[in-house]
Amino acid sequence: MSPHGLGGTVRLGGRVLLRDAALRLAPGWTCLLGPSGAGKSTLLRLLAGLEVSARLEGWREVPERIGWMAQRDLLQERLSLSANVQLMARLRGQAPDPARAAELLASVGLAGRDEARPAELSGGERQRVALARALFDEAPLVLLDEPFSALDPARRAAMQTLAHTALRGRQVLMVTHDPAEALRLGDRIYLLRDQRLEPLPPLAPPHPRPMGDTELALAAAALLARLSEAA
């Protein structure tokens, strides 16, 4: 697998968000931390090839297909869960594959709910469907923009574990503002601050660390203290 990522200088209007830096991805989870407004989501959108007002002067290497999970689940209310899971494929013009959609729904704990509508689900269940939608494409690169931030802590932890298992072996880039989340999941952690990408030491594998892990709790507290100092 070729190294995906982007590098160079990113400008937003007259402001520089990133100066002459590179973000190289590898199989496993790369987490991107940073204060609000530093440009984490902008970087993710640039990588995804989505519309942004920022400009990248440099290189960008991405696979043909990219999995995507945003902060909002972006489920289509009028479509069944099955159709929602297949949405990206249908947008691409592929033939429907309800059997595979059912399989993926089952793998995220929603077996037999194929014909349910998104409105019948809780917030956590909706993000599970969004995860199944991202999995349907078998994209080698999956980009996550704070997808668990709206969930309550218990559901968030469960969702992290589920996503980690489901996305095993792929290149995952997750933007988050939660140090504990980055430490729990990240094989690599970067802090986007002052126009730089600063690598932070990740916790040793295996990931995801259990929620009660003391090392995780201490590291998260230390990292939070460090982030607060700078802020």
Partner: peptide
Amino acid sequence: PAEVLDLARLSEASPWRALLWLRLPHAL
């Protein structure tokens, strides 16, 4: 919403398919 249309961009959907699957349901 623009974030819904992101899905069309990511899947490189034709304008027609984006209309059918994303815009029309929203516009009903």
